[in-house]
Design a protein around this nucleic acid. Sequence first.
DNA 1: AGTGCCGGGGG
DNA 2: CCCCCGGCACT
Length: 520
Amino acid sequence: MERRSSMASVLSRRLGKRSLLGARVLGPIASDGPLGAGPPLEPQVELPEGAAPQPVLTCKDPGSREQPQELLQALGSAGLQQVAFQPGQKVCVWYGGRECTGLVERHSWAEDKVTVWLLDQKLQICCKAEEVWLAELQGVVPQALSPEHGAQAPAYRPVSRNIDVPKRKSDAVEMDEMMAAMVLTSLSCSPVVQSPPGAEANFSASRVACGDPWKESGDVSDSGSSTTSGHWSGSSGISTPSPPHPQASPKYLGDAFGSPQTDHGFETDPDPFLLDEPAPRKRKNSVKVVYKCLWPSCGKVLRSIVGIKRHVKALHLGDSVDSDQFKREEDFYYTEVQMKEDPAVTAAGPSAPGTPTAEPAPTARVTSPSLAALPLPPPKAQCSGSKHPGLESSLPSAALSKSAPSSFWHIQADHAYQALPSLQIPVSPHIYTSISWAAAPATASPLSPVRSRSLSFSEPQQPPPAVKSHLIVTSPPRAQSSTRKARGEAKKCRKVYGIEHRDQWCTACRWKKACQRFLD
DNA sequence: AGTGCCGGGGG
DNA sequence: CCCCCGGCACT
């Protein structure tokens, strides 16, 4: 009745918005695969439009290469060689357990991060500068591994500095095993992991293994906040059973099994991790990076990776862990923390990062050396009164890792709808993932989440040659009123699960709201 | 016709 | 809040 009347006004209002949208500043972003069609948008920031065109966007790195002297120092302390990577440079990265070559997308000094386009993987990752080395430099090639990549040997690899790096016979399978082992290990031993058990479990090895199953665009970048809808459960192949959390929501489990596409075991929506620089990338120069030992009652803080590794290895791991499988285990026992200036780090001992005591996200950021991190249930979520308390708290990683297609993240994601800010979650002592739920409309982050592709959830479709990421328009005239999300090309719950399994949809979808699970 | 999702509305 | 749904923009 009156709805009608109000409708009118609403309508006009809506139209207004829509028309704006209709104008579609982001035209190209939506579906037009080809980027050409787009309006005369400026080259726009970090839009890695396809790896194809040489990515030399020299122009604008958001607040990057400025004058991070401090950082340099910090790095120096780490005893690492510091290189200024230029966009377009060919480099090697230790990613997913092996070296991958790629092109430098940009080098953010402030973060000491380098965004690299992995050619083989067709994805972009963001890692610490230390983990990247110029491909051209034929320097001290440490191990004799990467026989295959013989082409360019790493001139420098952080890890190998003190400790013999694992590089074994680059074997995908072995890699998996290794990862699995690591995961398990950290799962059972790691001090911090206790609370968020699902953690490592999710961190399935399979996705870490470079060049493999993890969908093409499985990028993992720790770059600030990445829009994420978090979800998906473990890997298909490996089901890391974690004894601790036996019971899962019968409901979800049930559904999971019943669900037709459960077989996939995971629903990846890699995009979330896409590289979207957190708008406020700028960091105070006073950032200090330290590495904290996460061993139970240790909490030692060192300023260099090498140092911390040595510490962990020597004091906690001992030499026993020698089988190459564990060589890099130290990685799991320390965490990198970037602090503003706070000398209080040391005191942080008690509240280990992995603990639910989520640290005030902004201050601490951690990156995993070379492992792809998976999103984890934000520890915070629990606090923020979510409705499935039981579920979340006892969310069995195991359970979800195998069949529940959406159980775990599903749940989390659902709440995401409720607008979670953006937090970083510890995935494992040393692996953090930052997630930020796109509650972005408000913040006019010019460079906001960019989703590139739709996750091929139930169809093994091959990724197009180049990962395309649509950039988010930053139309100068700030048409950021783009309230209505441009129709995503990604699959949404409905498509994925079908109406029959509506109960598996994310709540947002169920409520006919913007899908939070497969956001685009 | 089918979808995605904004704006509203009911309980 | 949680959940549903009319309706409209898009596909």
